[in-house]
Design a binder for these strands. Structure first.
Length: 514
RNA sequence: GGCGCCGUAGCCAAGUGGCUAAGGCAGCGGAUUGCAAAUCCGCCAUUCGUGGGUUCGACUCCCACCGGCGCCUCCA
């Protein structure tokens, strides 16, 4: 039974969909005014895994991520750069798209743009005025927070505390907590015609309009960063629920934020670490200097997308994440365990791990292990994995199980000596294949290990492999004659130029050091 | 000031009112290997920020304190 933490109730609730078998999911996407950075990638990766797991669990999922392509920041940036807002938005949208794609995020169904949703936004606003929840003031339209019955229910704040005079906008707003649905255009700003004159939407209204348009008045999951709980999501709820008279979303899921400190002492949130001045804090400090502003596409040049994805999923989504190059390298080292197993699998089973036709749904993956000891332990790990994921998408716990699973498979290959060609019988290989298929099945719900990673290879002019074959043959002859001095000289010499030799029962393999 | 989150080994990080407190990185033994690499086995928190309280029993619930962090200001 899947359980999901709901910010509304501050508890984990059993997951029950609004409509049987269907899930509507909305994630607040980027404002496309600057290249995206690592922090923008947290939500997409996490909710990508959420969608995959829901699909795996048998739901028909529609996932919407909006693109905010008109707002103050965009207008300012476009002015500063002397680039039309539309063009800026298009460039930055392309940047965002290529970044999430590099992280394997490719199951988003709709990317609605604010500028392409104007009729719905205007209609939404007009309806709110008609129903008495909003008012016009000098070409602006504001939502009247005092009319929203349970304003504050998501962020758990009391509305009364937020009401008061209009603050700096006292001439237009009735209450300081009131927020803009529509903003009158200042001269030179991009604008759209509306019943209130030329203007553009306020920040929150687009999400209400788009989610309603694509997912309906009530849908299942609304997600976003923890920083959006207030005021953004609170205001979305107010708008949508006042207009429709029914809940906007059943489950509100919020992911933790990437730590964004520039001070060594603050990174990681551990006073002791900074005080000691140890390696980790120094590393974090160095990285954080560029972290806040470094475009994600630059980071992608340093680390593979799949590694960053693995890193983001290795901790629970509601926790804050500390980023450092050292952490990424640790994760990279850990992932080698999987990549090496995949190669081993190919050697032993004669087929690529990536070509395994693994079950796509939980029901199809269910199996009874019988007496086979390997499959018994595989089935056990599979259950452990599913338990973890059923518990509010505990991807960190799930990844731990993946390590247990790959260890069980390696042990089986060791115990049965399957690296030796003569020891491979059909029954053993069948068990191994089944175990590997389960690994692929489970990793697939996290969107991991879907495609072979780009391996570092020697320039392939056709000559290198033949030269390597020759060297390996020479070394084999030396070893046969117990001339280990020569054998080691070849291996050590190659190691110095970045080529690793590994001796196995089936022969010697070479690879380029990563 | 208001609202809220977090503090688990050298580092990262799951988890739980009583079952051996996952997993990863680093480290140390051993098996394997001509030696390696890889893999496997074992070790690595009598203890879960500190001090109280509730309970037959708490790391897990409550309170206080210390430390870190977020939001309250159109940041994912």
């Amino acid at each position: 039974m899947l359980r999901v933490y709901n910010t509304l109730s501050k508890t984990k609730e059993p997951f029950e969909t609004v409509r049987p078998g269907k899930v509507g999911m909305y994630l607040c996407g980027p404002t496309v005014y600057k290249p995206s950075h690592i922090g923008h990638m947290v939500g997409p990766v996490i909710f990508d895994a959420v969608k995959r797991y829901l699909v795996y669990s048998g739901y028909d999922v529609t996932w919407v991520v909006n693109v905010t392509d008109v707002d103050d920041k965009l207008i300012n940036e476009s002015g500063a750069r002397g680039v039309p807002m539309k063009q800026l938005a298009e460039e930055m949208t392309a940047d965002y798209m290529s970044n999430i794609r590099a992280l394997g995020v490719d199951v988003i169904d709709h990317f609605p743009r604010c500028t392409a949703t104007m009729p719905e936004i205007i209609e939404f606003t007009r309806d709110l005025i008609a129903k008495g929840f909003a008012y016009e003031a000098k070409g602006d339209v504001y939502f009247d927070v005092s009319k929203a019955p349970d304003y504050g229910k998501l962020s758990h704040r009391r509305a009364e505390a937020m009401l008061g005079d209009g603050g700096g906008m006292v001439d237009r707003k009735r209450n300081s907590a009131d927020f803009a649905l529509w903003k009158a255009a200042k001269s030179g700003e991009p604008s759209w015609d509306s019943p209130w004159g030329k203007g553009r939407p306020g920040w929150h209204i687009e999400c209400s309009a788009m989610s309603c348009k694509l997912l309906g008045e009530t849908f299942d999951i609304h997600g976003g960063g923890l920083d959006l709980v207030f005021p953004h999501h609170e205001n979305e709820i107010a708008q949508s629920e006042c207009r429709h008279g029914r809940p906007m979303a059943k489950y509100w899921m919020h992911n933790g934020l990437m730590q964004a400190s520039d001070e060594v002492g603050k990174v990681g949130g551990r006073a002791t670490r900074a005080a000691e001045g140890d390696l980790a804090s120094q590393e974090a400090g160095k990285i954080s200097k560029s972290k806040g502003s470094e475009p994600f596409r630059e980071m992608l040049k340093k680390f593979p997308g799949e590694t960053i994805r693995f890193f983001l999923l290795s901790t629970h989504y509601r926790r804050p994440i500390d980023f450092s190059a050292g952490r990424i390298r640790e994760v990279e080292t850990g992932m080698e365990t999987f990549y090496r197993f995949f190669k081993r699998y190919e050697r032993v089973a004669g087929e690529s791990f990536y070509d395994i036709d693994a079950p796509k749904t939980r029901n199809n993956g269910d199996f009874t292990p019988g007496k086979d000891p390997l499959l018994k332990s595989v089935a056990e790990w599979r259950n452990r994995y599913l338990e973890a994921m059923d518990d509010d998408f505990n991807t960190g716990g799930g990844i731990a199980v993946l390590y247990d699973l790959v260890r069980a498979l390696n042990k089986f290959v060791d115990d049965e000596k399957l690296e030796e060609p003569g020891r491979r019988d059909a029954a053993k290989l069948k068990s191994l294949r089944h175990g590997a298929a389960v690994l692929k099945e489970l990793a697939g719900t996290l969107g991991l290990f879907r495609e072979p990673v780009a391996e570092k290879t020697a320039a392939d002019d056709g000559l290198t492999p033949r030269l390597m074959d020759l060297l390996i043959a020479l070394r084999a002859e030396a070893r046969k004659k117990k001339d280990f001095a020569t054998a080691d000289r070849i291996r050590n010499g190659l190691s110095e130029i970045g080529v690793v030799l590994e001796d196995r029962p089936g022969g010697t393999e070479w690879s380029v050091k990563s």
